[in-house]
């Protein structure tokens, strides 16, 4: 038997509330993070990702408190991301009950931080988040680049090469978000998902663009992702986790039902 593919509901949290933006603008409130996490846990989510999109310092303490409360009640893996810049940040989140941390901008500005973090805490808890945007025109060979700051700042880094470098530096998992698709509900960018999944030995989580259950299936079957992450389709009760799992299993994907 093979490993099950994972469904990971994502909580984007701002100032203590779950929110969901469309292309990171136009935010909708989706509830209290602890209640939302508990609901997904009860529904059989395979893992939960908590992304702290708060900018202010005071709200960081709220985040640590939220992570602690979630970890005290939800006994599935919990990944925390957003603003992780130092080993102290990682230690704080792990102590609060996170199992993994997701490093994004800090990996781009200082790749050695990923190496240091993996050596200190083990690759198993270091997820590198990759925000990729397609930069090739139609008709050209597909090419994607890394963007930071919520997709606003280009870096010139090739996404596939960057993914390989991050794995070499010790990333235990990659969280790949298509900035073109995030919030659009048009489905994952399967091209970049497959290119990166096939290029690295560690698991890849596909993110950005899920609007229906076929998108989840495609992420695995065509994108070769090991896990699929979605937010709004679950937050606003368009689909439940069991429905999504059943749908994927019926299409031949190994799932934990």
């Amino acid at each position: 038997m093979a490993l099950s593919k994972r469904i990971i509901p994502c909580l984007d949290v701002d100032a203590g509330r779950v929110v969901k933006g469309v292309n990171f603008v136009g935010i909708r409130d989706a509830g209290d993070p602890v209640e939302v996490a508990q609901r997904y846990n009860q529904q059989g989510a395979d893992e939960i990702t908590f992304l702290d999109i708060t900018a202010s310092h005071e709200d960081r303490d709220t985040t640590v408190d939220m992570v602690e409360r979630i970890a005290g009640e939800v006994f599935i893996p919990l990944t925390v991301g957003g603003g992780i810049r130092t080993c102290d940040d990682i230690r704080t989140m792990l102590n609060a009950g996170a199992d993994k941390v997701s490093i994004n901008t800090a990996a781009v500005t200082n790749p050695d931080f990923v190496r240091e973090a993996a050596e200190r805490f083990g690759s198993q808890c270091i997820v590198v988040a990759i925000d990729a945007k397609r930069v090739s025109a139609d008709g050209e060979p597909a090419r994607w680049e890394i963007f930071t700051h919520g997709g606003r700042r280009p870096t010139g880094l090739d996404a596939v090469e960057w993914a390989q470098k991050m794995v070499e530096y010790g990333a235990g998992e990659l969280l790949l978000t298509s900035m073109d698709r995030d919030g659009t509900k048009a489905g994952f960018d399967l091209g970049v998902t497959r290119a990166i999944s096939d290029a690295v030995a560690v698991p890849v989580i596909a993110s950005g663009g899920v609007g229906n259950l076929d998108h989840l299936v495609e992420g695995v079957s065509e994108g070769h992702a090991d896990a699929v992450l979605a937010a709004s389709i679950f937050h606003f009760a368009e689909y439940t986790i069991p429905e999504a799992k059943r749908y994927m299993a019926d299409r031949g994907i190994t799932m934990r039902l």
């Binding site: 099950s4 998992e173 030995a201 698991p203 070769h224």
Partner: peptide
């Protein structure tokens, strides 16, 4: 399909 290492996730 290539099996990833680490073996990460839910298995029987």
């Amino acid at each position: 399909a290539r099996l990833k290492v680490p073996h990460m996730g839910w298995n029987l």
